[in-house]
Write a protein that binds this DNA or RNA. Structure first.
Lengths: 207, 207
DNA sequence: TATTTTTATCACCGATTGGTGATATATTGT
DNA sequence: ACAATATATCACCAATCGGTGATAAAAATA
């Protein structure tokens, strides 16, 4: 009987590593990346900071591994959804923008990561940006570019503006309790106003 | 003769205060606000840090005074430009957006201030945001709200998205050398593509 | 010239930063 | 049972952080 039981040692490397990664996430949610001090990470993980160095080499490598462990773009993956899209990606674009607007607002860690990308030029963040570009390329190259033809670039510019605007407004709404252009981005009224604007602009773009 | 000459003492309070304010600006341009350490500010100013405390009270008060000394919204002031605007503010909106896109790209300090507003909830930054709101209110209430009537809020939402997008893209272009939606925001081609998109979207909004 | 006030510097403080060598303890292998 | 290795802790380091009291030196005032 006892031989068949799961053996769980008190000292588990993988479990400890995960504790450090969890600590990074927790601090990122609460204090932001400025709070990612070595001592604080160790304290939050409930382990000695020396372990962090033995397992990850350095604080930066730990952070890089955390970023790599997250899959922030999975929510916005453009899947080849069986039926052929015959509206030039109009409905897809709308859905993508709205869902991004909602996702970024809810995911505070992702907000911090986005902010980080505006502050530093960290390698692992560059990788994240590349993922975003690659993911977007699928939508552009296979659907909208052929549809808009000579105006393909303008469509890309419009999406760039809207996605960026979504990012900024969501982050702004989280840290500030001030309005933006008279709209309160924390209330459902203000947010649905933005969503309507997104739908409106996409509709007009496809006219 | 000599009595008529300007007397410039070696020790000048106002001059020293200005040195500290200049130091804040310089550090903000180069290292960002994370570089605004007391010792670094003093070293950059070429003065003892003690002076900073005697003149400004604290580092935070110095920073607040710096922010107050800047007039970031002067470039975008909506002046009552004599002739009555009869296009519902269409041309004005376009001009405002394009000039903001250009101004923010060139003004690195302002970029840092905007970023700061996404990170902290500092009082002086709140004041800055209020200025933006107040300034925008002039455009909305006196021109576009009466024009769009029941759709006034949607217009505000559209402007909110575009302004935010402009901010994000400009800051992104400065810190990253990566593309955004396949567009290189550092080249004139990429930037004029965004500008065209802005004009296009405003045109469509006024249709 | 002598005195007072303003301007500026210096030396130092405790707390915190990132980082490491020595050591203890648990687990595994023989 | 014993040795070897992996896991985890502890005490400590130099550097830097924000902040301050004592003091020097220049300028203003008398």
């Amino acid at each position: 009987m006892k031989q068949e039981e799961e053996i769980k040692p008190l000292r588990d490397k993988e479990k400890s590593k995960q504790k450090f990664l969890d600590a990074v996430e927790k601090i990122l949610q609460t204090k932001g990346f400025s709070g990612l001090k070595v001592n604080d990470i160790a304290r939050t993980a409930g382990l000695d900071k020396k372990l962090m160095y033995t397992y990850f080499g350095s604080r930066d490598q730990l952070i890089d591994e955390y970023i790599r462990s997250q899959d922030f773009w999975s929510n916005v993956k453009v899947e080849p959804t069986g039926p052929v899209i015959d509206d030039g990606g109009k409905a897809l674009s709308k859905m993508m923008l709205i869902s991004q607007f909602d996702y970024v607002f809810k995911n505070k860690e992702f907000q911090k990561i986005l902010l980080w990308g505006l502050l530093e030029n960290r390698k692992s963040l560059k990788k994240l940006a590349d993922d975003r570009e690659e993911n977007g390329a699928m939508l552009f190259e296979s659907i909208t570019d052929p549809y808009f033809k000579e105006n393909a670039k303008r469509y890309r510019a419009i999406i760039a503006l809207l996605i960026s605007g979504i990012y900024y407004l969501d982050i702004y709404a989280t840290t500030n309790d001030c309005t933006f252009c008279g709209l309160d981005l924390k209330t459902t009224e203000g947010r649905s106003e933005i969503e309507e604007a997104l739908r409106f602009l996409i509709d007009k773009t496809y006219e």
